[in-house]
């Protein structure tokens, strides 16, 4: 079965700003990762584990689907 890479997008940057313009460092400290990891997630250079994805959505008080989503149009499935 051919595997295709999903184009996973996120609203981390958007929700961070909605949350009193929370800094990347503050979010990193909240979820227990480095600031570079938050930068990489926002720039879509790194897809977090399910555990970290849930921690981020809990930090924003949103559901996982609101924070992370699949760009259906762009994915080559």
């Amino acid at each position: 079965m051919a595997k295709s890479k999903l184009d996973i997008g996120n609203n981390v940057r958007k929700y961070r700003f909605e949350l009193d313009e929370m800094t990347q460092q503050a979010l990193a400290d909240t979820v227990g990762v480095s600031r570079q990891t938050i930068v990489a997630i926002e720039k879509k250079r790194y897809s977090p584990s399910l555990d970290l994805a849930f921690q981020l959505s809990l930090a924003f008080g949103k559901s996982l689907e609101e924070v992370f989503f699949v760009n259906q149009g762009d994915s080559s499935t």
């Binding site: 990193a28 990891t37 584990s49």
Partner: peptide, 10 residues
């Protein structure tokens, strides 16, 4: 030097 945090990406 920022605090040394080793996470899943590291």
């Amino acid at each position: 030097i920022a605090k040394d945090v080793t996470d899943e990406r590291d």
